[in-house]
Amino acid sequence: MYTQAMDLMAREAKPKVVKSAEDLQREEAFEARIAAGEFIEAKDWMPEHYRKTLVRQISQHAHSEIVGMLPEGNWITRAPTLKRKAILLAKVQDEGGHGLYLYAAAETLGTSRDEMTEALLSGKAKYSSIFNYPTLTWADIGVIGWLVDGAAIMNQVPLCRCSYAPYARAMIRVCREESFHQRQGYESLLTMMTHGTAAQKAMVQDAVNRWWWPSLMMFGPADKDSPNSEQSMRWGIKRVTNDQLRQKFVDATIPQADILGVTVPDPALKWNAERDAYDFGEIDWREFWAVVGGEGPCNRERLAARNKAWDDGAWVRDAALAHARKQATKAEAA
């Protein structure tokens, strides 16, 4: 899974503090390292804005993984076979793992896990808009694997070369696991499209119709509306623009839809031989901004579920800590 392009949140102006000569020198050295394609490690000096941008992007990404467990978790108890249930459990567990890799990477930048959790639970932090859509049928689970994880892979592969090394390392691990997610989803759909009843095939098409546009929205606002992209590209936090990634996703996905025997709900979709790419319709940006702004079909439900999980788990966290402290005291006394 993947978070939205970071431009949504990276709006704050560059800090206008007067910089000392020493800071300017450090900044220059930093820029030179980035330009030379070097990786930045946690303890290396970095500009405050670079640090903040990364904390925001990585924590949003982590939140997305965690919230992303909810729409799929919805179907674990209703998976049609034991095989599909085991696969779905493994996938949802992976998403939890991805969230943990990413939180750990963000923590190397000096933010605490509790601060990040607090930001998610209070609604201050964002997560990918895609998870604010409901999973209405079993076919949604297959479509999420195929389209949502497919879009995630497009987005995440370039992040394996992110200039911030702990993030890049986490992304390498995530990408290694993500391919399973997409393939299991596609295979599940393929099974329904090849061996399923007419009703099951219609269910797959319906799921594709509902998830297609939200999947395209995962790549974030259009380049012309991403004012901070340029800085992120220069700093090597971002490697490919939102629109480039979106195009790449469409070009890769349409042939897969053909093999599956489904169509995507876009009358403007057409192969453009001149560009050697698909032309496609305009995203409904009003819907995009509404979902990002908290007005999607499931925003409230998702946050409520995370808050409930956190509150219900409080006694477990406290008890584990109390036990660990007691054991430590005993060991000291002995």
Partner: peptide, 11 residues
């Protein structure tokens, strides 16, 4: 290979 939070070593 990474880090994590846990109450004690067994966890």
């Amino acid at each position: 290979c990474g880090s994590l939070h846990a109450a004690d070593s067994a966890m």
